[in-house]
Design a protein around this nucleic acid. Structure first.
Lengths: 156, 156
DNA sequence: TTAAGTGCAAATCATTTGCATGGAT
DNA sequence: ATCCATGCAAATGATTTGCACTTAA
C-alpha cells in the first residue's frame, strides 16, 4: 500500500513527500468527507509546520492520481474523500444539508447510456446529486415557495 | 408569460422589479449558459445602472422559483440557464472543458431508483456530469497520468 | 546535484453583506 | 405608508500564486 502509492506517484512523475503521505493518511482514517481546512487541522498533529498551500497541492496531485475524490456540494468548501471501491455517491439535501451516501448500482444504466450513446467516460464517483430528502419533503408540504419547486423538479 | 411570472413572484411573496425582469429576459434570449458577470454585461444595455448585487439577488429568487437553473461546472463561476422543458443535462469534459447538452431520458432509471429506494426527490435539472469526452479520450491514450485515471473511473 | 516541492505572505476573485436610498404594493 | 429591493462600497473567504528556501531523487 505504501509502496503502491510511491509507484503511483513515480509513474506519474511526482515525488513522495511527508506532506502528501500525511494528507492521504488523514483521509484514510475516516469515512467522513473532509474539507481542506479540516485536513490541515488533523494533519498538523503529525506535521505541525504543514501549510495550507501544501494541502491544496497534495490534494490536487492525489486527485489526479484518482486516489482522492473531490466532492463539491455547492456550499463553498470542497470536500475530499478517499476513492474507495466500490464507488458510492452522495445525495445532498438542499433544505437541511444532510448528505446521504448511496452505493453505485443506481448509476449503472446512466453510465451505460453515456458511454454508448455519447462516447463520454463519466467520473461517476465524485458525484453529488442535489434534491430534497424524505424528511424535508414532509415538512415542506405547507410552504408555497417550496411546493412550486417540488412540482417543477418532477421528471421531464 | 409576463403575468405568470408576476403570479409566481407574488405567490412566493416577492415583488416584480425591472431588475428581475431584465435578468430573466437576458436568459430567455439565449441557449447558452451565462455567468452572473455576463448576465450583468448584457442586462446593462437595457438597465445601465444595474448592479451585480441585484443580479445575484435576482438569480437567487428566480432559482428558488425554479425559473432558472444554476450549473456549477466546478470552474469558479457558476453558470445560469433558463429552466426549460424538457429538462436537459450537461456533460462537462474535465480535459478540454467542453460542455455537451444531453436530453433527460438517460436519467429516467436513476430518478426512479432515488425516489423509490431512497425517498429522495432529486433536482435532475441543474445537473453536470464530469468526465472525459470522446475526442479527449482518443488523445489521452498516450498520457500515463490520464490512463491511470481512465482505468480507475471505470464503473464500480 | 538539481528540479520539484514546501512554507509563508500576499493576491485573486466570485460572491455576499451593511446600509442609506428608492420604488412596488 | 410600508417595507421589500436596489446601488454602492467594503468585506468575506476559499483557493491560488510568487518567491526564497528545502529536500527527495
Amino acid at each position: 500500500m505504501q509502496s503502491s502509492l510511491l509507484d503511483d506517484l513515480r509513474l506519474a512523475g511526482y515525488r513522495l513527500t511527508p506532506q502528501r503521505e500525511v494528507v492521504l493518511a488523514v483521509l484514510s482514517e475516516t469515512h467522513e468527507h473532509l474539507t481542506a481546512r479540516e485536513i490541515l487541522r488533523r494533519a498538523r498533529r503529525r506535521l505541525p509546520r504543514l501549510n495550507k498551500s501544501a494541502v491544496y497541492r497534495a490534494l490536487d496531485v492525489l486527485t489526479h492520481l484518482s486516489l482522492v475524490n473531490p466532492i463539491d456540494v455547492g456550499q463553498g468548501e470542497i470536500q475530499y474523500e478517499l476513492n474507495t471501491q466500490p464507488h458510492h455517491h452522495h445525495l445532498v439535501c438542499q433544505q437541511c444539508g444532510k448528505i446521504t451516501d448511496i452505493d453505485g448500482h443506481a448509476f449503472n444504466t446512466l453510465d451505460k447510456i453515456l458511454r454508448t450513446e455519447y462516447g463520454f467516460a463519466p467520473f461517476l464517483f465524485h458525484f453529488a446529486i442535489f434534491g430534497i430528502c424524505r424528511e424535508c419533503q414532509r415538512k415542506m408540504k405547507k410552504d408555497t415557495r417550496v411546493a412550486l419547486l417540488l412540482t417543477r423538479c418532477a421528471p421531464a
